[in-house]
Simulated scan of single mutants.
Amino acid sequence: MKAVLMSGLGGIEFLHIAEHPDPVMKEDELLVRVRATALNRADLLQRRGKHPPPKGVPDILGLEMAGEVASVGAACEGWARGDRVCALLPGAGYAELAAIPAGLAMRIPEDLSFEQAAAIPEVFLTAYQNLFNVARLGAGQTVLVHAGASGVGTAAIQLIREAGGSSLVTAGSTEKLARCAALGAIAGWNYKDGPFAPWVAEQTGGRGVDIVLDFVGAPYFEQNLQALAVDGRMVAIGTLGGADVGAFSLRTLMAKRLLIAGAGLRSMDTARKIALTRAFSVFALSRFADGRLVPIVDSVFDWHDVGDAHRQMESNANVGKIVLRVTG
């Protein structure tokens, strides 16, 4: 098969398409002909040598894909050649073929294209896991979503809305905030206008939010604690602004009874990923089918232009997902 390979670590100039051995399918797996994949921040880090793949996973970028089942393992039931599926991957999505445990496969709703379906697995499963399983989102609760126009952000806004909650968002432009509002965010703050904690207090009548989904890390840590209500929960999903938090007092955590959790799907074991995929599928696939949930695609690049796609993500200009169409 062909795949996007790296001739070195660093810039986009090291990305190129070349031949790579086909994946070896196990009896409980599906072999999928990949039609589209999508970019994630982890791809940029892996390209620079800062986020290596798990042990046993080829050093090929790509944490999700959509395509057609090409072969069905002997121990798999309910699948047939030609079935359209999308799935979360531990890596190696930028390739013509992918072998996946059958339990990770999600059927693509009829009206969605491969490009749209490729924009679902990583961001929606990340948002679902951290909102429902980690932060225990309930109806009537309010969530502060940082990087609201990102892939995970746009997924989270929709999931919060469908769960009967409300979302406040931060983003870096009026256009991005407007896109978040169109998806269901009740208010937005441009982080370039200054600290967000006073704005959160104003929006919540001084109460604070029940949950914070944070992609920024250290620079937002103190403000996140200020923004949380009593018994609030914060989930750290990314460290775009830095990972090392300086000295802070535990009194705020104790006084408010706050919980802080870390997130990460890539290191999660396969059994837990399968359970997550099943729960998400029950909640979400019918909603994708009838349009209540929508994968947000910023742009689609031919995979021969993978460097341009990475450059687009690095510019931080995208709203939603950047997708690669896998062509011959």
Rank of each mutant, 00 (worst) to 15 (best):
K2I: 09
K2S: 10
A3R: 07
A18M: 15
P23S: 10
V24Q: 12
M25E: 00
M25I: 12
E27C: 10
V32R: 01
V32Y: 07
N40V: 07
R41K: 15
R48G: 10
G49P: 03
P53Q: 02
P53E: 06
G56N: 05
V57I: 06
V57P: 04
I60W: 04
L63P: 02
E68Q: 01
A70C: 06
V72A: 04
C76N: 03
G78C: 00
R81D: 15
R81I: 13
G82Q: 07
G91I: 00
Y94M: 05
L97S: 06
I100Q: 10
M106G: 08
S113R: 01
F114K: 01
E115C: 13
I120R: 05
I120T: 11
P121Y: 10
T126I: 09
T126H: 11
N130G: 08
F132N: 00
F132M: 05
V134P: 02
R136K: 12
R136L: 15
Q141E: 03
T142E: 00
L144R: 00
L144W: 02
H146W: 13
A149M: 09
G153C: 04
A156D: 02
I157G: 02
I160G: 01
S166N: 13
T170L: 12
S173Y: 11
E175Q: 13
Y191N: 08
G206N: 03
I211T: 03
V212M: 03
V216R: 03
Y220P: 02
F221Q: 04
Q226F: 14
A227S: 09
R233I: 08
R233V: 08
M234W: 04
M234K: 07
V235G: 03
I237W: 08
T239K: 15
G246I: 01
A247I: 14
S249I: 09
T252A: 12
G264W: 05
S267M: 06
K273I: 03
A279M: 14
S281E: 01
A284G: 07
L285S: 03
D290Y: 12
R292G: 06
V294E: 10
V294P: 09
V297Q: 06
V300R: 13
D302I: 14
W303V: 01
D305I: 15
D305S: 15
V306K: 03
V306L: 11
H310S: 14
M313V: 09
E314S: 13
N316C: 13
A317M: 11
N318E: 05
V319Y: 11
I322Y: 14
V323I: 05
